[in-house]
Amino acid sequence: METPLLSCTGLERSFGDLKAVAGVSFEIGEGETYGLLGPNGAGKTTSISIVAGLLAADAGEVTVAGERMHPRATATKRHVGLVPQELAIYPDLTARENLDFFARLYGLDKARRATRVDEILEVIGLTDRATDRASEYSGGMKRRLNIGIGMLHQPRLLILDEPTVGVDPQSRNAILESVENLTTDGISVLYTTHYMEEAERLCDRIGIIDEGLLAAEGTRRELVATIGEQDLVRLHVEGDASAAAEACAKVDGVSSADAEDDTIICLMEHAGGRLPALLQAVNDVDASVSGVEVREPDLEDVFLHLTGKALRD
């Protein structure tokens, strides 16, 4: 990567005895979309709060466009736009008034303010409802306005904190499309999510974060490759799934076998040739297999492999 737009080095932040972020480092290049993928409580929101200058780090450093970011770095903050996880709009103001207020706050002059407000209203599809109060909008429209405010001042880095949480499928797709369009404008995006599909669809690179630490990062292909040339086998069993998983783990070529309810998830090389041995191992502990599924692993499996737990835990 050439000179990165965002550089985070050794970020740490505690809240009392809780170490929310314990040494996170990553970089984002110009026009790149970087995903922070992790379950709730992994440290995603704390990390991006530090990146956005909302929180001070206990240790480590953030630079945006070569300038150091901290809560009082007003000049550096101009490079960054934030779309918080919760709706951050004023319901008693119209969409136009909401946008106009934040445009003023970012110091846009009158002419540019008028132009940008109109442009954003067009982008988020609220031109026709621009003079209605936000309280009268649907959930999806509010979400779009929430994102529009973040893009308003044309930041070089846009941070989106789980923007699709609690959104209906139609609005979710519209949001993902609008994020995809951002990078064509050259904006760098830092996107946090615990939805594997979103990370796979949007992000050029992904950082997997858990318990305040970045467990791995890379492109989807690179991350999946960390598992090796392995297949993922799901066995639906009747009987003692835990005992069956232990038996499966001893089969030659199996690198991991975990039981989840009545399912055993195995990572193994050359699943096709070793499947009979796997079924025999289940049989040997007086359990039986009612279904088998073999597929290539995805990010969810990578997360499971790296952390030993599912993304939605």
Binding site: S49, A52, G53, L54, P71, R72, T74, A75, K77, R78, V80, L82, P84, E86, L87, A88, I89, Y90, P91, F102, L105, Y106, G107, I149
Partner: peptide, 15 residues
Amino acid sequence: QEGTLPRLLVAPLRP
């Protein structure tokens, strides 16, 4: 409470 405070504080202004 309304979630707008973070958005104000990331804007280029002193808290």
